[in-house]
């Protein structure tokens, strides 16, 4: 197991194996993901990078036939142990998906949905959360006069920032981004990347991307996956300029994938 950077380890993945029925999707994955930094998972389609991401907030639990061996600890707590409350875990580990998926509600209600779930109903408090979350997602200035409008009136890029704001509204420690820019145009993508840079001072970000240039641009460390295994894990700069594994070099130089 390798340890990187001066930042403290927040997520510790230990000898993780995951099976979808008979399919061995993740093989002996061990990683230490540092806090308050951006970690990127890269690799070709089907390499297990999204699967690993979804084990971190246990979204894989909902896929029938999934079996897990090994452990994942966040802040030292094994998130797969019996006494872990999945809802509380997901509150702490927010997620943004590939396609923007705002709820068919107003912009305001989209953000307020999470806090309300967790018992906040005070109007003033909600107003405050909505504003700070939208400010954090750099969307406030664009939507502050239209909070009652449907979330679907926003553009794709704005919708995705709304989804980020929605995730931030429940005050998570970790933000998972599952190819969060792949459905967006280049300018919206750039905005999300800039946003991620700003957020990493306060949140631990783990992003899956099929776009290695994006990983190179925004992440602090990068994990390269192939066929369910971690091939290489290093500082992003080092991994892209001087990879140790031949397969990594082949992938980042575009020879496959």
């Amino acid at each position: 197991m390798q340890t990187l950077t001066k930042n403290q380890t927040l997520i510790e993945i230990n000898q993780l194996n995951l099976f979808y029925g008979a399919f061995h999707a993740l093989k002996n994955v061990s990683l230490r993901i540092p806090e308050k930094a951006i970690t990127a998972f890269i690799g070709p389609s089907g390499c297990g990078k999204s699967t690993l991401l979804r084990t971190l907030n246990r979204m894989n639990d909902m896929i029938p036939g999934t079996r897990i061996e090994g452990g994942i600890a966040i802040s030292g707590t094994d998130i797969y142990s019996g006494d872990v409350d999945v809802e509380t875990l997901r509150k702490k580990v927010g997620m943004v998906f590939q396609q923007p998926n705002p709820f068919p509600k107003s912009i305001y209600d989209n953000i307020a949905y999470g806090p309300r779930l967790h018992g906040i109903h005070d109007r003033k408090k909600l107003d405050e959360i909505v504003e700070t979350s939208l400010r954090s997602a750099v969307l406030w200035e664009e939507v502050k006069d239209y909070l009652k409008r449907s979330a679907f009136s926003l553009s794709g890029g704005q919708q995705q920032r709304l989804c980020i704001a929605r995730a931030l509204a429940v005050n998570p420690d970790i933000l998972l981004m599952d190819e969060a820019t792949s459905a967006l145009d280049p300018i919206s993508t750039l905005k999300i990347e800039e946003l991620a840079q700003e957020l990493k001072d306060r949140y631990t970000i783990v992003m899956v991307t099929h776009n290695m240039h994006q990983a190179a641009r925004v992440s602090n460390q990068t994990v390269f996956f192939l066929n369910g295994e971690v091939v290489e894990y290093d500082e992003t700069e080092k991994l892209f300029s001087n990879p140790t594994d031949q397969r990594t070099e082949d992938y980042i130089s575009g020879r496959f994938g």
Binding site: M59, E87, L89, M95, F97, N101, F103, G114, L117
Partner: peptide, 21 residues
């Protein structure tokens, strides 16, 4: 769509909350 449910689950909603809200 599945994605709406996922969005709610990812915020820590229970099955019942996803169904009802």
């Amino acid at each position: 769509p599945r994605s709406l449910r996922d969005g709610a689950y990812a915020l820590g909603a229970t099955r019942f909350e996803v169904a009802l809200k």
